Simulated scan of single mutants.
Amino acid sequence: MVNIHYSPKGTPYVWASDLHAHLEIDSPLSEWFSHILGYGFVLNEDYSYHPKQIALPDGDYNEKKEWAVQLDMAKHIAMIQRTDKGKALRDYLLRLDSEVNEGARLNHLQISALFDLCKVMGFFSVQKMLQSEHFEFMERPKNWWDYRAKLFGYSKKQLQDMMQAIGKKYTSERQALLHLKKHELIRQATIDLFIAMGKSTIYAKNMGSFMETIAKELKPEIYNDNGLLIDFKSPSQIKTISLLKNKNDRAKLLGSLA
């Protein structure tokens, strides 16, 4: 199938030459693509032009025309062809689009953003802030704790039973999870963040799962930093938290995840 590439901003695209080859178009690439543009596609919106230098045997160079095609345009091109390969390509791009929109597929820039975020999500102060944002975004629902139990997959009673089973006392849900499954705290905080940003529940849960996996590898600090007289956070962590707190600055931290 056609390879997917990503722009510096994380936007997925495919090369026109790859579409041309995969769809087995008989006419030359430039002639075919000129015909495609007759359907009303817009330069620098639906596609962009990228001249490539091709080395010749005599040491000289020849310029080859190439176009980066956005996924929506690629889907239209696949439909226009009216062939089995065109239909299969459209179905593939639709599935890819769905995975991107639901947060099930990330590029390297998005994964890098999650790594930076993971380094501060273990602090109770950050978790509390994001939970509060989630609460406000949902317009302070009266069934808040029932809603969270369904969202995260276990109830307050189940948590109590698990703590009794290991013989530990606790004063808060976070303290209990710190004993039972500390990386769950980071998953929850991530879900809180993305739902508060207006993302879908499935997107937020996918981000939470990614972050939990990253946390198991990265092993970030996880502890209750509320009310501490001395702040042990690194300058890098302080900067990340500052960006996270300011909603206007979050795009700098999260990039295309925002």
Rank of each mutant, 00 (worst) to 15 (best):
E133H: 11
S155M: 07
G227R: 09
N3I: 13
Q70M: 15
E45L: 12
S30R: 15
S30Q: 15
F135M: 05
G103D: 01
Q237L: 03
H5G: 13
Q70L: 15
G255D: 00
N246V: 07
L56C: 06
S48A: 08
L117N: 00
W67K: 07
M1Y: 06
I4W: 01
K52T: 15
V14A: 02
I77C: 01
L43E: 14
F137T: 04
L159C: 00
D91K: 09
Q164A: 15
Y47K: 11
N107E: 02
I80A: 09
L130H: 06
A21H: 13
M1R: 01
I238D: 04
M121H: 11
N107C: 05
L89E: 00
N206Y: 01
G40E: 02
N3P: 14
I36P: 00
V42N: 07
E212H: 06
L151H: 02
H35I: 14
L253I: 07
F210V: 05
K75W: 04
M129V: 06
A74K: 03
E217N: 15
E66P: 08
K142D: 04
F232N: 15
K168R: 11
L228W: 05
E99F: 12
P235Q: 07
K182I: 14
A55P: 12
A68Y: 02
D192P: 12
A258C: 11
L109T: 06
S155Q: 05
A165H: 14
L19A: 07
L177H: 09
Q53K: 13
W144I: 10
D84G: 13
H134G: 11
A165F: 13
V42H: 12
Y61N: 12
K252F: 15
K52G: 14
T171H: 14
L193S: 03
D116M: 12
I111R: 13
L19T: 03
E136V: 10
F232H: 14
I4L: 03
I238T: 05
I4H: 01
M138R: 10
L114G: 02
I186R: 03
R90P: 04
M73K: 01
F124E: 09
V100G: 05
K252I: 14
L159W: 05
L56E: 10
Q127P: 04
W67V: 07
L253V: 04
T201E: 10
L178S: 10
K119F: 09
Q175Y: 07
V126R: 05
L96S: 01
M207W: 03
I80M: 11
D46A: 03
F194W: 04
L228Q: 06
L254Y: 02
L114S: 01
D231R: 01
K216N: 06
I36E: 04
M121L: 05
Y223Q: 09
H22M: 11
I238C: 09
P12M: 04
I25E: 10
H22R: 09
N226F: 10
K128L: 14
N101C: 09
I186P: 00
D97K: 08
H35L: 13
W145F: 13
G153Y: 04
G38V: 01
Y203V: 01
L253P: 06
M129C: 09
E173K: 14
H5N: 12
M163I: 08
